[in-house]
Nucleic acid binder design. Structure first.
Lengths: 330, 330
DNA sequence: GAAGTCTAAGAAATCGATTTCGTCAAGAGT
DNA sequence: ACTCTTGACGAAATCGATTTCTTAGACTTC
């Protein structure tokens, strides 16, 4: 019975009613009990699944949201994705995950697709500060920026307090007795990288009166960049005895470089932004600035669903705390 | 100019032609140079983006494929996803990532969505052996199973040689001088878990004449399960001196448990299926059975794209090698 | 120069569900 | 008894692009 293609008209014919009535049954509009029964029976017998494409064309709307992230292999973003998905599912939405590899062109393409596909909204972890969401705005598609904010006051954003996180990470290292605390951060064009560095800088100034730019390295938020940066720092005439590393991937590389030099936490102080899910022994003694990735995702999805539901109040910015904690066990 | 909604008719009006002609221009059919020029100009001025929903309804087809995986936070599956995405993008397709958390109900829902959304095909990493793809088949949607095969001969599959991997992992531990080699594998209902265990079992039999079930633990492919299983093994009257662990997450847990007992590789032999992207020091001395996740994804996407293009030859099964290697550096 | 190709391009049908607009009948109110 | 609601439900319009059909002209070919 379950043929490859069952339309609403076939169901209607079988139930002896019109297509309109079938539609009403499927969408919970008022229908007599008898009609409803017949329609449901017919739909079940034919294994009818409404064609979402047709519905979407008519409704100008779909229950799908796009989540655009720069790196699908980074656990931070997958955890974030999971948060988005949980919240979205609870609201009856599906999530399409789009991976840009930090490429603005791909990001732009995905936004166009979101428009052309009638997606209900977009959650964007911007590749960089130049991300252009104007086409989304022009098409009235709700957008929420997550992790990194866009430089515009008119759209919702969910971020963590990166500056405070950087400050507290560096301070905790100083407090633990380290004196030369370096900083390995991400690309200077990336907001989170800049803010985390500024937190470190602030702590250094508080401590030494002036920031020590010799101990600052901009890398690329990737493993190899972290390894290279740490290697460079260790090669200084006066190397650091601790470091704040601005993301998990670079920390992996940095740990590698440390190990090559015969060093490791807790002898060498290390504070890292974000969890290191697969770091075992190495993890012990590392200070982790907890990035609440899943919560970021949930919050972003929450804001987006509000907008989709019609909320058009002024843009909100949610800033979650980045808690430092000294991690013992999972 | 770029208004919220630009249809093909508005472009047609502005260019002084019919909608059909605009469609022809957008799809590369024959049109006079003059018309083409005018249409392109009008389309550009209005920032026209064809409505994909309408196109899809008419064409009964979309350039989107679904990738259904059990755990989005597992690096194995994200690497696989990246492989799928690369290959799909190259072929002009987008990928929708669906996370099931190993829940057959969610898996089933996603398959229905794939049908209702007119997706071109589905790549499925089955939650378990009972996954039912019959509705996809009934709707003529190409399906490729990846990582785990479905128990049916009529659909394409891409897997790794899990049995050989398990065998070689265990053998390499025996060869290195370990004598009591345990095995921590996944749920017995999961094919990969079963096969990897069988490889270990084979090696144990070859060595000892009989497999030692005392040293076998079925866990859940998760960190906590691996930790608990290893803790149990270490508590035996005669604990193992080495272990084959059937996936990366459980290995993370197992390493934790080892550490708690004051043990670690290479003193305690450890062979693991799949990469441990964030494992630093711990990783050294671990034997990794390399699961070519990205290649799996690429191969699966390749098969699927062939089917979408109309290939209806008999089902193919691609088995990739799971190479054991002793990992030094990234 | 008549009959037979092509070509470009417009009019209209189509994809399948939703939704507006009417119609009809049953029950309410005076 | 007569109008007024009210509710169920069918006919038809609609969403926007694609894809037949058709037609009108231009160009061959004998």
């Amino acid at each position: 019975m379950a043929d490859a293609k069952v339309t609403i008209y076939q169901v209607a014919a079988r139930a002896g009613v019109s297509a309109a009535t079938v539609s009403r049954v499927m969408n919970g509009a008022r229908v007599s009990p008898e009609s409803e029964r017949r329609v449901r029976a017919a739909a079940a017998e034919l294994a009818f699944t409404p064609n979402r494409t047709a519905r979407r064309l008519r409704r100008q709307y779909s229950e799908v949201i796009a989540l655009i992230i720069p790196d699908i292999e980074n656990p931070f973003f997958t955890a974030l994705a999971r948060g988005v998905e949980n919240r979205a599912r609870a609201g009856g939405f599906s999530v399409v995950l789009c991976n840009t590899d930090d490429d603005p062109a791909r990001e732009s393409t995905y936004m166009d697709i979101a428009i052309a596909e009638h997606m209900a909204g977009v959650i964007l972890a911007p590749a960089d500060a130049t991300s252009d969401v104007s086409r989304l705005i022009a098409h009235r598609r709700p957008v929420v920026a997550v992790d990194r904010s866009l430089n515009r006051a008119d759209i919702d954003a969910v971020t963590v307090d990166n500056r405070a996180g950087g400050l507290s990470a560096a301070e905790s290292l100083f407090a633990a007795g380290f004196s030369r605390v370096a900083c390995i951060t991400g690309p200077s064009s990336v907001e989170t990288a800049q803010l985390r560095m500024e937190g470190w800088q602030q702590a250094s100034r508080d401590r030494h009166g002036a920031g020590d730019d010799e101990l600052l390295r901009y890398a690329d938020y990737r493993v190899d960049g972290g390894r290279a940066a740490m290697a460079e720092l260790l090669a200084l005439r006066e190397p650091p005895d601790a470091a704040v590393v601005a993301n998990n991937l670079m920390a992996a590389g940095a740990l590698d470089a440390l190990h090559d030099a015969g060093l490791a936490p807790p002898g060498f102080g290390l504070a890292v932004f974000g969890d290191l899910p697969f770091a075992f022994f190495g993890r012990r003694g590392i200070r982790v600035v907890d990035l609440p990735a899943r919560k970021l995702g949930e919050a972003a999805a929450g804001l987006l669903l509000d907008r989709i539901a019609g909320d058009d109040g002024p843009a909100r910015t949610v800033v979650l705390r980045a808690d430092r904690r000294s991690r013992e066990k999972q």
